[in-house]
């Protein structure tokens, strides 16, 4: 696999073998992480092959503040990783570093990312002056681009809207178009910074299903930033919690296919993660979503 090494400054040292966090937690549901999952579509399949993303001793500073502090991260090919953390903990900073968008940010460390990386933003970021299809295939050079774009729009349920202007679409449709734009490039790594943050709860559930389906079909490695603990547990193979500029928790989620908050083990994961985020979980009420309100930094 082609890897593009963005070497910021390589400090000599022992080769790092990282699996994410410094301390795999004992006693949590991750004990049985090694067991193969029964369902690949749920994202439960264990990663295969070497890591596609590898960050070692990654440091990013804004002024005097060290936001990422010798962070270690590795993501295997086809692995779905969710990234949690309090507001301001540096999730977006990490994502932008991996995406190569942090020009002029002070930092050091070693970062290896694959060649084809897609990034889904919190806003759909469609260019208002391009029709939907042109937005989806933006930057694609190959002659079959239009056909592939059409197929991608079809996959996200927007067939027939190729010639629509972005402002003619609903928020959810715009976000689906953005997803099509990310996937039409067949990325080895899909980065997403709270892509569903601006959507209503119902649309968000639909988007989860869609994302799961697309993930099962295309199998990119995924790094999904989210505020929503349920979203993380529902979608990811592995949930990372960012704290003090490092991956403080690395929780492998091993739940069978239709993951539902009703599952008591789902609750276990949720409580564990909420505790890691420094919030006391509410009494288990599976149908009530507690994530957004409670994971937000109260100081914000």
């Amino acid at each position: 696999m082609a890897t593009d090494t963005r070497e910021l400054s390589v400090e000599p040292g022992e080769p790092t073998t990282i699996t994410g966090g410094p301390t795999p937690i004992a006693g949590g549901p991750s004990q049985d992480a090694g067991r193969p999952s029964p369902d690949a579509a749920s994202g439960g399949a264990r990663p295969h092959g070497g890591p596609v993303v590898r960050a070692s001793r990654l440091v990013r500073r804004f002024g005097g503040r060290t936001v990422l502090d010798r962070l270690e991260l590795s993501i295997a090919a086809g692995e779905f990783v969710a990234l949690l953390g309090r507001s301001g903990s540096g999730k977006s900073t990490l994502l932008r570093a991996v995406a190569g968008l942090d020009h002029e940010v002070a930092g050091s460390g070693e970062l290896r990312v694959p060649e084809r990386v897609s990034l889904a933003f919190q806003d759909s970021r469609l260019l208002p002056w391009l029709r939907l299809l042109d937005n989806v295939v933006l930057g694609l050079k190959r002659p079959g681009a239009a056909a592939r774009g059409r197929k991608a729009l079809d996959e996200v349920g927007l067939a027939g809207r190729e010639r629509a202007w972005p402002h003619e679409l609903s928020g959810g449709e715009q976000q689906r178009a953005a997803l099509a734009r990310s996937l039409v490039r067949e990325p080895e790594l899909l980065l997403a910074d709270e892509p569903f943050g601006a959507l209503d709860a119902l649309t968000r559930i639909r988007m989860h299903d869609l994302l799961r389906e697309l993930y099962a079909r295309h199998r990119p490695a995924v790094l999904l930033v989210t505020h929503d603990v349920d979203e993380a547990v529902e979608l990811a193979d592995r949930v990372l919690v960012l704290e003090d500029g490092r991956v403080a928790r690395d929780v492998a989620v091993d739940l069978p296919a239709p993951r539902t908050p009703r599952d008591p083990r789902f609750q276990e994961y949720r409580e564990l993660l909420l505790a890691a985020l420094g919030v006391s979980p509410r009494p288990a009420l599976p149908s009530v979503r507690t994530a957004e309100e409670t994971t937000d930094d109260p100081a914000q």
């Binding site: 995406a99 968008l101 806003d123 260019l127 002056w129 933006l138 930057g139 490039r185």
Partner: peptide
């Protein structure tokens, strides 16, 4: 934000001018 998008989808300088700068 559009400049960022152009970087993410890997637009060449010419395509960036044509698709983002001029229409914008």
């Amino acid at each position: 934000r559009y400049v960022e998008l152009a970087e993410v989808v890997g637009l060449s300088r010419a395509a960036f001018l044509r698709k983002v700068v001029v229409p914008g």
